[in-house]
Design a protein around this nucleic acid. Structure first.
Lengths: 252, 252
DNA sequence: AGCCGATCTGAGCGGAACTTGAGGATCACG
DNA sequence: CGTGATCCTCAAGTTCCGCTCAGATCGGCT
């Protein structure tokens, strides 16, 4: 899960990067508003799920950065600042920030708030084409083709029969099942299921796909898309055009 | 724009209804969790855009209402409460609340926060809101598998036999028992049972789990989910199973 | 201060999960 | 039909993770 941290104080930033990294975020650190806006330009990489925006910089600047981000992107923004006065809070929220946290804050609470805005997902944005994983997570169990995926319990059943999966297998399936029919590229899968930008050297992904297929025993469900990645075949005849929320398949 | 206000204090409610009304909200006032869940059952009317949930009621109840709302609906929830401690904040946000505001709050800020969550919109929800009376209210002592957990007295008994637990052991069990079957991740356990922001260095969690298992002497009750966390195995064998037409919503 | 239970840490073990490599099957394309 | 790239399967390694035990540290109580 990628996160953009906008913070000019190197020490604060380093500490946050460390903690967030340990909690499974892949953090990009921008030292200025300019750099932040730059980083948010869609470039084919997995999009940022959250922006953590420190307003420590020359006063008003931070608000401006926020409204510029909003002008071009629907990514959730959390403002972090020492300015505790009500005016600033209201102003920040009205500019489009999703949350406003004042220093000193509790790290655990900040993490909880990050997760809270992240699970809401990004707003549809006029400019960027939403990538499949920008789709907010659906509540409740996923169900399709007789497969039931319960994310909270981490359990999967096929036609009522319980299928025990390992961690990678489950994460893999949960990712693909998020948008059946959509092709997930290898790099994308790696960055979601494995943490950090490490790309598997060997046949790692194929092996996991293999054992997933074995356990589910539903031939034809998980389809390899040669040279690109994998996808789930939905039961209903293809993905359906006129669907608002779900993204257009395979851009690029 | 419809808004659901859950608040048992008539005076506070009246004031809020007035202010919110002036700001363009059509407010429905629910006086209890039960009434709130009732109101959220889809009935063909315009759905609620936000739920304002006051936790003033008998202690734990509010959290439970929140998680029940979450079990069936993606509507944004803002918790409003006098409980300012970090634990409660994190707990509330982890249960799926989108924001957590403590009293006394500034009305302008509350409005700004309401607008902030409202513009994000609801998460897609796979299942419908459970009918309130279909869900057994789990008030008072938790009970499952012959274990009785009395949160108020902090006492636990197994098959009538009293089992003395230490603080950590009890908190751990109480957390897991809140939703048997659900997997709690390590970080979440740490943030709710330990002081916030603290991440266990050594084998702390495992040791406590170990001694909890020993004292309860119910093999198979506390299950480790490799690479993720722990969960309690519920007695009722998987509630999941292939459901007929009306999918019975997961309890929880 | 001294005691005692509670909590935390570190080392070692065992097993599950993950990774890798090689060979065979399959596909796209000329 | 031939060829190279890509994918799949199988069978080893290798790493990672949870469990346990034993000792250190913390903290409340007398």
């Amino acid at each position: 899960m990628r996160l953009l941290l906008v913070e000019d104080d190197e020490r604060v930033a380093a500490a946050l990067v460390a903690v967030l990294g340990r909690h499974g975020f892949q953090v990009r650190h921008a030292r200025s508003g300019h750099e932040a806006l730059d980083a948010l330009v869609p470039d084919g990489n997995e999009p940022y799920r959250v922006v953590l925006l420190d307003l420590g910089l020359p006063d008003r600047d931070g608000f401006e950065v926020c409204s510029r981000i909003r002008a071009g992107s629907g990514v959730p923004v959390i403002m972090v600042t020492a300015r505790a006065d009500i005016r600033s809070r209201i102003h920040g929220l009205n500019l489009g920030a999703d949350d406003y946290v004042t220093k000193p804050y509790d790290m655990g609470e900040l993490l909880a708030r990050i997760h809270a805005v992240a699970r809401r997902g990004a707003l549809p944005s006029a400019v960027s084409v939403p990538a499949p994983d920008a789709v907010p997570q659906q509540r409740g169990p996923l169900e399709s083709r007789g497969i039931r995926i319960d994310r909270e319990r981490r359990r999967v059943s096929v036609d009522g029969r319980d299928v025990p999966l390992t961690r990678k297998e489950f994460d893999l399936l949960a990712l693909l099942a998020q948008s059946p029919g959509v092709v997930y590229r290898r790099e994308q899968i790696f960055s979601e299921v494995w943490r950090s930008g490490w790309e598997g050297n060997g046949r790692t992904l194929e092996v996991h796909i293999g054992s997933l297929r074995n356990k589910l025993a539903l031939p034809g469900l998980v389809e390899a898309v040669r040279g690109v990645g994998y996808r789930l075949i939905p039961d209903s005849p293809t993905s359906t055009a006129a669907d608002p929320a779900p993204p257009a398949p395979a851009e690029h």
